[in-house]
Design a protein around this nucleic acid. Structure first.
Length: 890
RNA sequence: GGGCGCUUAGCUCAGUUGGUAGAGCAUCAGCCUUACAAGCUGAGGGUCGCAAGUUCGAGCCUUGCAGCGCCCACCA
C-alpha cells in the first residue's frame, strides 16, 4: 500500500517513476521485497570455480541478542560481496546459524524453565510450545525433549535474525542455509571425527583436564581466560624426615592432602641440602619427595612449592613426567572427595590424625575448604617436630590471575577424566605455515594467530559432558565386569551418519544389550562446539558428501570474523582444513573491529527506550547505518555515533535529490540518459570532470581489491559532493537549454555518465538508494538490478578525451569559489550579478580557465564583458578580483 | 610479565614512497539560488601524546617514555 501511494505521488514530468521526497522506509521495503522476488542474489551452481567468490559467513549464535556489532561486521562483509558481484563473480554467500552448544542450552533452560536429565525416557507428548514456565518448579525432561525445545527456540531466534538481515540489505543467498545442529552439520562433524580417527590425529585417554565445576564439563585451552581475583599466600611449615623444616607459601592450602612432592629450583642454595630427602606434610603427615624442578622460581614465595594433583598446569606436567601416584581430592562438582589416608596413594605416618582432618574438609567446596584448612593448620602443632603451629602467621591477601572458563563463574580445576583429544601440539609448525598462506586483513592480525599457535600447551580437548551438541559416533563393548572397553571402540560407518549412540544401536547388537555385560554402551559425550564451527567451509561445500560441489566451493575466498575468536574459530578451521585436505580453508581472512558504545546508555535514557538495530534502521535507514559501518576500516573499532548515521542519511538524501535533478534534465526534453553516450563529451569542463571520474574508478577498484572499502567510499563520497556542489552548478545553465547543441549534449552526456558511475561506486555500501535511482533511468527492465550491472571499468571513460589541462576543473572551482565568497561576505544572495571579474594567473592556468569561462560566468551570474583574463609575465598565484553590481538582480 | 594496535581541530576520523596540516560533524556569520531548508555559501579553529635522534627538511623513519585499548601468560 505504501508503494502504491508513493508511485501515485510521482512528478508529472518523470514518467511517473520519481517520487518527490526521499522516504527511506518505503524505498527499502520495496527493494528488499523485489530482490527476493527476483532472486538476484542466488548462487549459480553451473558456473566454474574461477568465476565464483565464496564467503564463509560467520554463523551467529542465535541465542544471543541482536546488537549493533552484528550489523556492523555483517555489513562490512556484504559490502565486499556486493563489490565482487558487480565484478561479475558468482557469489556464494550462505547463512549459517550457530544453535549448538552451551549458550543455547542455557537460554533454553531459562526460557522454558527446564533441565535436561539424560536418564529420563523421551516423552512424545511433551511439546515445548505448550509448556508454561514455572519459576518455582524446574521441570526435568529427557535429552530428546530438551533437544526439541532447543530446536523450537532457535527457530524463533533465527527468524528474528533473518528479518534484520533482510532489512539491512545483506545480499545473502537465502537458499543456502545451515544450522550447526542440523542433520547435515552433524553428519559432516561426525565424518570429520571419523576421518581424524583414521588419520591417527585423535586420542582417547583419561588424563587431568581443565574442568568447570558448575557446567561439569571439560574445557579446551581456547575457552579459558585469566581473571584477577583476590587470594592469599598461606605460609605452611613442612618438616623434613631426619630433621629440618621449611616453609611453603601457597594460595591453595586446601590441596595439601593432594600434595605429591615438594620442589625448588636446582640452584637454590636454601633447599639444595634437602633434595632427595622426604618432607612431611602437616595435618596429613604424608611423606613426599623433595625434588629439584626448573619451573620453581626462587624469587616467588619462599622459593619452594608443593606439587599437588592438581593445582595448575605445571603440576599436571610435572606429574606426567614423574612416576608419582595421583592423589585426587577434588571431584567433578568442585568439592573435597572422601579418601582414606593411610592407604595407597594417601600414605600417612599418622592415618588417624589425617583422616580426622580430612573429615572436616570432606564435602566442602574449594573456597570453604580453604577457610576450614586455615583453622586446622592454625591448631596443628605437630608440624616440624612441634616447633609451633603449621600455619606461619596469617594468610597474606593478594590479587592474582586465575583461570576461568570464559562463560564460567568459578575457577577451573584440573580433574582426571576420560576425554577425546585432537593432536595439535605436534603440528604447530605446519599450522603456522598454513596461517602464513592465508592473506590477513589487516595484516597484523596474523601475529595473534602466530602467538596463539606458538603458545599452545594442551591438545585440543574435543569432548564435552553436555547434552545439546553433536554426539560422538562411537560405542564401546561392555566387559563382563560391566565396564566399557575403551580400548576397542566401535565406530559408526560413514553411511550411517549422523548417529546418536545413546539411541542408535551399533551394528551386530540389539537395543536390549545396551549397558549390559557383553553388550554395548554409547559414548555419552558431545563434541566441542568448535568441532562443527571449524568445518563451516566444508559444511557449505558438502565435503566428503558431494565431491563436485566441494570442488566448486572449497577453499573459500573470504572468512570474515572478529578478532577475539582468532584463537578458536580461525585456528580450528585452519586445523581441520589442513588435517582433512592439506589445504587452507580460505584465501583471505577479514577481521572486523568492535563497536564501542560510550554513549549508548545516554542515548537510550534520553530517548526513553532501548536502541535496537531495528529502531536504528527504521529511524536512519539501512543505507545510513551501512554507511556508518562502511566508513570503518577492517580491524578498526568504531564508536556507535548517531552523528555519523545522520551523515549517511544526508548522503542518501543527496543522492536522491541530485539524481532527481539529473533525471529532470532528460525528462524535460523527453529523452533518457542512454540517449547520450560518452562520445558526446567534448567540452573542456566536462572532460576535466570525466578525468576525475577516471581516476576515481581506478582508485576505488584498487581499494576494493585490497578489501579497503572504507577508502573507496571516502573517495567516492568526496568526488560526489564536488559533483553536486560545484560541477552541477557550473553546468546547470548549459544543460537547461531546450535546443540541442554540442555544448548542451556534452553536458547531458557527462551528467549521464557521472551519475551512472557514482551509483555503481556507491552501490556496495548503499544498495537501496542506488537501486532506486537505477530503476528511474538506467534499468532496462524490472529485473535489471544495479547490483548485477557490472563494476565501472576503463571503458566507461575511454571514449572521452583527456582535458587540455588536468586542472581545468580545479581552477574553475577556485574562481567560482572566490565569486561566492565575495557575495557571501557582502551578505548578498548568490544570484547577485558580478559587474567586474579580473583573473590573473600564470600562462598555463590562464589557458586552463579560458575554455571554461562561459560556464563560470553563467554559474556566477557574471555580466557579459565583465571579465578580464590576464597572464602574469612571471610566476604568481591565481588572483581573482570580484566587483559586484550595485543593484539587485532583476 | 610478553605481544599487537592506537594517540592529528571541541567530537569522529583521513593523511600513499619524508616536501607548506585535511574532511565531516559541532560552532559562528550569511543566503529562499528554476534538484535538495533533511538545503546552500563562507569563516574561525591544530606545539600532529612527550623527549631525543637521523635528515636540507619529520605527522610519517629510529630510540626511549607516558596514556588508552585489545590479545596472550606458569594459579606456588
Amino acid at each position: 500500500m505504501l508503494i502504491r501511494r508513493m508511485t501515485g505521488q510521482s512528478m508529472s514530468n518523470t514518467n511517473g517513476k520519481i517520487p518527490k521526497k526521499y522516504k527511506h522506509n518505503d524505498i527499502e521495503q520495496k527493494w528488499s521485497r523485489l530482490w527476493e522476488q527476483n532472486k538476484i542474489y542466488r548462487w549459480d551452481p553451473s558456473r566454474p570455480r574461477e568465476e565464483t567468490f565464496v564467503i564463509d559467513t560467520p554463523p551467529p549464535t542465535v541465542s544471543g541478542s541482536l546488537h549493533l556489532g552484528h550489523v556492523f561486521s555483517y555489513t562490512q562483509t556484504d559490502i565486499i560481496a556486493r563489490y565482487q558481484r558487480m565484478r561479475g563473480k558468482n557469489i556464494f554467500y550462505p547463512m549459517g546459524w550457530d544453535d549448538n552448544g552451551l549458550p543455547t542450552e542455557r537460554r533454553v533452560q531459562n526460557y522454558f524453565g527446564i533441565r535436561c536429565e539424560p536418564h529420563l525416557p523421551y516423552d512424545p507428548d511433551w511439546k515445548p510450545e505448550n509448556h508454561k514456565r514455572d519459576e518455582r518448579n524446574i521441570l526435568e525432561v529427557s535429552r530428546q525433549n530438551f533437544i526439541e525445545a532447543c530446536d523450537y527456540l532457535t527457530k524463533i531466534d533465527e527468524d528474528a535474525f533473518e528479518r534484520l538481515w533482510r532489512r539491512l540489505g545483506l545480499s545473502i543467498d537465502w537458499e543456502q542455509q545451515y544450522s550447526t545442529i542440523d542433520n547435515h552439520c552433524r553428519k559432516i562433524s561426525q565424518l570429520s571425527f571419523l576421518d581424524l580417527v583414521k588419520k591417527g590425529e585423535v586420542l582417547h585417554t583419561e588424563s587431568p583436564t581443565m574442568w568447570d565445576v558448575d557446567f561439569k564439563s571439560a574445557i579446551a585451552q581456547a575457552e579459558i581466560e585469566d581473571r584477577e581475583i583476590p587470594g592469599a599466600y598461606h605460609d605452611i611449615r613442612f618438616g623434613v624426615e631426619g630433621g629440618g623444616e621449611f616453609v611453603i607459601s601457597t594460595t591453595r592450602p586446601e590441596l595439601l592432602a593432594a600434595c605429591i612432592a615438594v620442589v625448588a629450583h636446582p640452584d637454590d642454595e636454601r633447599y639444595r641440602k634437602y633434595f632427595g630427602k622426604t618432607a612431611i606434610t602437616p595435618l596429613f603427615n604424608s611423606p613426599v619427595p623433595i625434588a629439584a624442578a626448573e619451573h620453581a622460581d626462587p624469587e616467588k614465595g619462599t622459593g619452594i612449592l608443593m606439587v599437588c594433583t592438581f593445582g595448575d598446569i605445571m603440576d599436571v606436567e610435572w606429574w606426567k613426567q614423574s612416576s608419582l601416584p595421583l592423589k585426587q581430592i577434588i571431584d567433578r562438582n568442585g568439592k573435597i572427595m572422601a579418601v582414606t589416608h593411610g592407604q595407597e596413594p594417601f600414605i600417612s605416618l599418622n592415618p588417624d590424625a589425617a583422616n580426622a582432618a580430612h573429615k572436616e574438609l570432606q564435602g566442602l567446596p574449594v573456597k570453604k575448604a580453604r577457610q576450614k584448612i586455615v583453622e586446622l593448620l592454625k591448631a596443628d602443632g605437630s608440624a616440624a617436630g612441634g616447633n609451633g603451629v603449621a600455619l606461619v602467621g596469617d594468610p597474606k591477601p593478594i590479587t592474582h590471575p586465575v583461570k576461568f572458563y570464559e562463560k564460567g563463574e568459578r575457577p577451573l580445576e584440573f580433574v582426571p577424566t576420560r576425554q577425546w583429544f585432537v593432536k595439535i601440539l605436534e603440528h604447530k609448525e605446519a599450522l603456522l605455515e598454513q596461517g602464513r598462506k592465508v592473506k590477513w586483513h589487516p595484516e597484523h592480525m596474523f601475529v595473534r594467530y602466530q602467538h596463539w599457535v606458538e603458545g599452545l600447551n594442551q591438545e585440543w580437548c574435543y569432548s564435552r559432558q553436555r547434552y545439546f551438541g553433536v554426539p560422538f559416533p562411537v560405542w564401546y563393548p561392555v566387559k563382563d565386569s560391566g565396564e566399557p572397553d575403551y580400548e576397542n571402540p566401535i565406530f559408526a560407518s560413514p553411511e550411517s551418519l549422523p548417529v546418536d549412540p545413546l539411541s542408535d544401536v551399533p551394528p551386530g547388537y540389539t537395543e536390549d544389550q545396551r549397558d549390559k555385560p557383553g553388550g554395548f554402551s554409547g559414548d555419552p559425550d558431545v563434541m566441542d562446539t568448535w568441532s562443527t564451527s571449524s568445518l563451516t567451509p566444508q559444511i557449505m561445500s558438502y565435503w566428503s558428501i558431494d565431491p563436485e560441489r566441494h570442488k566448486k566451493l572449497f577453499p573459500s575466498d573470504l572468512r570474515p570474523q572478529a578478532h577475539e575468536i582468532i584463537r578458536t574459530w580461525a585456528f580450528y578451521t585452519i586445523v581441520k582444513a589442513w588435517m582433512h585436505d592439506q589445504e587452507i580453508p580460505w584465501k583471505h581472512i577479514a577481521i572486523s573491529g568492535w563497536v564501542l558504545d560510550p554513549d549508548r546508555k545516554k542515548m537510550s535514557k534520553s530517548k526513553g527506550n532501548v536502541v535496537t538495530p531495528e529502531n536504528l534502521l527504521e529511524q536512519y535507514s539501512s543505507d545510513a547505518i551501512r554507511y556508518w559501518a562502511g566508513r570503518a576500516r577492517l580491524g578498526t573499532d568504531t564508536a556507535c555515533d548517531p552523528s555519523v548515521f545522520k551523515v549517511g542519511m544526508r548522503l542518501a538524501t543527496k543522492i536522491f535529490n541530485a539524481s532527481r535533478f539529473v533525471m529532470m534534465q532528460f525528462d524535460r526534453i523527453g529523452q533518457s540518459p542512454a540517449d547520450f553516450s560518452a562520445e558526446l563529451i567534448t567540452e573542456e569542463l566536462d572532460k576535466a570532470f570525466v578525468n576525475r571520474l577516471r581516476d576515481l574508478i581506478s582508485k576505488t577498484t584498487k581499494n576494493f581489491e585490497a578489501f579497503d572499502y572504507a577508502s573507496a567510499l571516502q573517495a567516492t563520497e568526496d568526488l560526489f559532493w564536488q559533483f553536486c556542489d560545484h560541477y552541477l552548478e557550473l553546468v546547470k545553465a548549459r544543460s537547461y537549454s531546450e535546443e540541442a547543441s554540442p555544448e548542451r549534449d556534452s553536458a547531458l552526456a557527462t551528467l549521464a555518465l557521472a551519475l551512472k558511475v557514482f551509483l555503481k561506486l556507491f552501490a556496495p555500501v548503499l544498495p537501496y538508494i542506488t537501486e532506486e535511482v537505477w530503476s528511474w533511468g538506467f534499468a532496462k527492465n524490472q529485473n535489471d538490478s544495479i547490483h548485477r550491472s557490472g563494476w565501472p571499468s576503463e571503458e566507461y571513460t575511454s571514449p572521452v578525451e583527456k582535458p587540455r589541462h588536468s586542472f581545468s576543473f580545479d581552477n574553475a572551482l577556485e574562481v567560482i569559489t572566490k565569486i561566492r565568497a565575495v557575495k557571501t561576505e557582502a551578505q548578498k544572495t548568490l544570484k547577485w550579478q558580478v559587474a567586474k571579474l579580473k583573473i590573473r594567473a600564470e600562462e598555463p592556468v590562464v589557458e586552463a580557465i579560458r575554455p571554461v569561462l562561459p560556464d563560470i560566468m553563467r554559474a556566477g551570474n557574471v555580466l557579459p564583458d565583465a571579465v578580464t583574463l590576464e597572464a602574469y609575465p612571471a610566476e604568481g598565484n591565481l588572483t581573482v578580483e570580484v566587483t559586484l553590481a550595485d543593484t539587485p538582480p532583476a
